[in-house]
């Protein structure tokens, strides 16, 4: 800032800094400082009533992985499946709204978002009621022999992945819609002029142009879905525990803050690697050609 002021009359030299400062301040206060405390806690010892002592205990990290690797793997697996399901459900819907929606576009888009005016927790609890073992829906599935006589949906991986898909679907639909909506349909017409059939025109023109939306939607879905604990704790069983449940348990029941912090760090590290890999494969730079 001081250097900027020495620039004298040139407003342009300090204005960008001034404009950036709220964001920098925000990130420092609410990202860097917490990350510092998180790291500090992750390297601490703890007693059984939650008092932590800083101790450079790197062991916490390896312990986090060795103790909970199956929950880590399950989290990313569930997150990935939910993301794929969101693409499968969300892309066609976004496509129809963007391309065929006409004057109903805004209303249809509104309908996508409206259910989410209700609290996340309430919606998930509602699923718990709908999927009850002796509820009408499960009875129907039993009657048509889609599930066994003793079968159930609640407290199964299917319920957890379904819940994640349901809860994060709009985060997939909206970015895809935005990218589809920007596509000039004349390009499709041009492709057809060049003897493309509709499928080929979609594959060669529309799909590549909409991939940035899919990319953004996938990140917005996959990252929070993998870290979610609400769906697994309400719709799952001890066998569907995700890493969020482990963090929640360590943090909100057993006051093992170092373990919770170390798990969070390992989780962040894995997410970062996965996202970078994903960006490498489906990065935006490649697509802007």
């Amino acid at each position: 800032m001081a250097a900027g002021r020495e620039g004298g009359g040139k407003r342009g030299t300090w204005a960008p800094w001034a404009l950036m400062s709220p964001a920098v301040l925000w990130l420092t206060l609410f990202f860097l400082v917490p990350v510092y405390f998180l790291l500090r806690t992750a390297l601490s010892n703890v007693d059984f009533v939650g008092n932590t002592t800083f101790a450079w205990r790197w062991h916490n990290f390896s312990e986090a992985w060795t103790t909970y690797n199956s929950e880590f793997i399950r989290s990313f697996w569930y997150g990935a499946l939910a993301t794929l399901l969101c693409i499968a459900l969300g892309y066609p819907l976004a496509y129809v709204i963007a391309v065929r929606g006409g004057r109903w576009r805004n209303m249809l888009l509104g309908l996508v978002v409206v259910p989410f005016f209700t609290s996340y927790l309430i919606r998930t609890l509602a699923w718990k009621t709908l999927l009850q073992d002796r509820g009408p829906f499960v009875s129907l599935l039993r009657d048509v022999h889609l599930i066994g006589a003793n079968g159930r949906l609640l407290s199964t991986p299917a319920a957890v992945i379904g819940g994640l898909t349901y809860n994060f679907l709009p985060f997939m639909i909206l970015p895809i819609y935005v990218s589809l909506e920007k596509i000039d349909l004349n390009l499709v017409a041009a492709a057809k002029d060049l003897y493309s059939n509709p499928w080929r025109a979609f594959r060669k023109v529309v799909l590549p142009l909409s991939l940035p939306g899919v990319f953004a939607g996938s990140l917005l879905t996959f990252i929070p879905a993998s870290g979610d604990f609400v769906n697994a704790s309400l719709l799952g069983s001890p066998q569907t525990s995700m890493i969020g449940n482990v963090v929640q348990g360590n943090f909100l029941a057993t006051v093992n803050y170092p373990s919770a912090a170390a798990i969070s760090f390992v989780f962040m590290a894995i997410i970062l690697v996965l996202v970078l890999l994903y960006a490498r494969v489906l990065g935006t730079e490649e697509l802007s050609v």
């Binding site: 990202f31 400082v33 990350v35 806690t41 940035p212 929070p224 963090v247 989780f267 962040m268 997410i271």
Partner: peptide
């Protein structure tokens, strides 16, 4: 389009899920 991608990546990177939970309390 790039912006959408970037914004998504940033928002995603910030939404670290359980990490935030732990961060709040550790201090």
């Amino acid at each position: 389009r790039q912006f959408i991608g970037r914004a998504g990546a940033l928002a995603g990177a910030l939404a670290f899920g359980p990490a935030l939970l732990a961060a709040c309390g550790s201090s």
